[in-house]
């Protein structure tokens, strides 16, 4: 049963990101000036890496990175590369750091910042944006980090419990 729930959860988050951008942020507040980019899928992958296993985290990073690129962006490679690499970096960082909820939340937020900056860099290289870094950090990075921090605070406990139980069920 738990084996089915995990992919379902990720597919739901995958679709929810798109629906979130389409519906939730009211235009009056954010639409014109700031970009709030949900990275809920990345957050879940990183928590899976930390509380579950790094192997699963990287595997899900590859699968959903590819899916993300094909379905949403039509440029294959950007998230296919970023998702697993960030999952790997986070798994290495967590070897050094203490495993409590505040620390992990901050590490995941750091992962989101790396993801957003990485996608900015790649899009700058392939010529899909001409934003300067100063504009990028004020228009996109900071609002994005705030919205994702809210999601992390809401999701950290349920995700932690779920992934830990998932790993227990695997070892049984």
């Amino acid at each position: 049963m738990r084996k089915v729930i995990l992919p379902l959860l990720f597919i739901l988050l995958f679709v929810f990101e798109s629906t979130f951008v389409q519906m939730v942020p009211p235009k009056e507040f954010f639409g014109g000036e700031r970009f709030l980019i949900p990275h809920f899928l990345m957050i879940a992958i990183l928590f899976l890496t930390i509380y579950g296993s790094a192997k699963y985290g990287i595997l899900y990073g590859v699968i959903f990175g590819l899916l993300f690129d094909i379905v949403y962006i039509e440029v294959i490679g950007i998230y296919l590369f970023l998702f697993p690499v960030i999952a790997y970096i986070v798994s290495q960082v967590m070897r050094v750091l203490q495993n409590n909820m505040v620390v992990t939340s901050l590490v995941v937020l750091f992962g989101v910042a790396v993801l957003e900056s990485g996608s900015y860099g790649m899009n700058l290289i392939i010529g899909r944006t001409e934003m300067t870094f100063a504009d990028f950090s004020f228009i996109r990075l900071i609002p994005t980090l705030i919205i994702n921090l809210v999601f992390i605070i809401l999701a950290v406990y349920p995700l932690k419990r779920h992934f830990e139980k998932f790993i227990e069920s695997l070892s049984e």
């Binding site: 679709v15 990101e17 798109s18 629906t19 979130f20 951008v21 389409q22 970009f35 980019i37 949900p38 949403y72 962006i73 039509e74 440029v75 998230y79 996608s119 900015y120 899009n123 899909r128 944006t129």
Partner: peptide
Amino acid sequence: AVVGRNPDRWHELLT
């Protein structure tokens, strides 16, 4: 009807 939008808004694509 629009059913989705690219979440990373570098490439403005709708489904």
